[in-house]
């Protein structure tokens, strides 16, 4: 477990170098300007270098190698971030898909996913696995899956976006225990995890035109989903047992529905990969 002086030393040694890497890489990004804006904002606030320092190989001693457990989790996260980032890139590039009034929402999310990708790639360095080829119809490469109109039908695009964001929350959450010994990495991952939660809430509410009626509220009610084919994304979200306690028995006048909403449930890496696999062509 690193202490605060370790963190300071790491920051001092890698801040400039990593920041430059990140900033030069953005030139290759289609939306370099907005990405730069977020990164620069993060640099000013101190959040980006702190997070980068946490994931720097130099934070792991002389060998400069990330522990295998960490690279496994980060490559898993990178796969999901690639899935999201290319999805929003393609959605925003599609003609007449996203209405003008909603573009700010999706450019915001897109920018974040781009930053997450760059950040994980920078942290993983040579260990970073390449971006897969995606099939956003969930056809496993056929291009004719259940979401065949994902980039021509806005409702389908929103449904897939919600599924990705809620899956992302469950994915990061499920990997937290693996990162437990690596405090700085854990903290960095958690600061992404909660942002995915913010994205999920926004997309969920957008799908209900911000009327905040179930199941189109910011939170997940029981295992309810109005998106066909996404039962696995919401499996076990109806859980009311926490830490061995039936939480419905320790509240008055609050139903199981609200109790379930108050806790987001994790999924294992295998469960997440089973959800994601249909979206991967190669």
């Amino acid at each position: 477990m690193s202490n605060s002086s370790d963190a300071t030393r790491v920051l001092d040694s890698i801040d400039t170098e990593i920041a430059e890497q990140l900033l030069s890489r953005r030139a290759a990004l289609a939306r370099g300007a907005s990405t730069t804006g977020v990164v620069m904002a993060g640099l000013r606030m101190g959040t980006v270098p702190a997070a980068l320092a946490a994931l720097s190989t130099s934070a792991f001693g002389q060998g400069g190698r990330l522990p295998t457990a960490v690279t496994g989790v980060l490559n898993f996260a990178l796969r999901l971030e690639y899935l999201e980032f290319e999805f929003y890139n393609r959605g925003l590039a599609a003609a007449r898909l996203i209405p003008a009034a909603d573009r700010t929402i999706f450019t915001t999310i897109q920018t974040h996913e781009n930053v997450h990708v760059e950040y994980l790639r920078t942290a993983l360095g040579a260990s970073a696995r390449p971006k897969p080829t995606f099939d956003y119809t969930a056809g496993g490469g056929s291009g004719t899956g259940p979401f065949a109109d994902v980039f021509t039908n806005y409702a389908t695009f929103l449904a897939v976006a919600q599924a990705f964001e809620d899956t992302g929350v469950r994915a990061y959450k499920g990997q937290a225990p693996t990162l437990l010994p690596y405090k700085d990495v854990l903290q960095a991952a958690l600061t992404i995890h909660s942002v995915e939660g913010r994205h999920a809430a926004e997309v969920r509410r957008l799908r209900g035109n911000f009327a905040d009626n179930e199941p189109n509220q910011g939170w997940v009610t029981l295992a309810l989903t109005d998106i066909p084919g996404t039962a696995a994304v919401y499996a076990n979200e109806q859980n009311i047992m926490q830490g061995g306690i039936d939480v419905t028995t320790i509240v008055t006048g609050i139903a199981a529905k609200e109790v379930s909403e108050a806790f987001d449930e994790p999924l294992t890496m295998a469960e997440i990969l089973a959800i994601v696999t249909p979206f991967i062509a190669a």
């Binding site: 929350v169 959450k173 937290a176 958690l190 995890h193 909660s194 942002v195 995915e196 939660g197 913010r198 999920a200 809430a201 910011g218 939170w219 926490q242 909403e261 108050a262 806790f263 987001d264 449930e265 994790p266």
Partner: peptide
């Protein structure tokens, strides 16, 4: 972790 993402929502 189960709680923090709900706070984020």
């Amino acid at each position: 972790g189960k709680i923090v993402s709900v706070e984020a929502r």
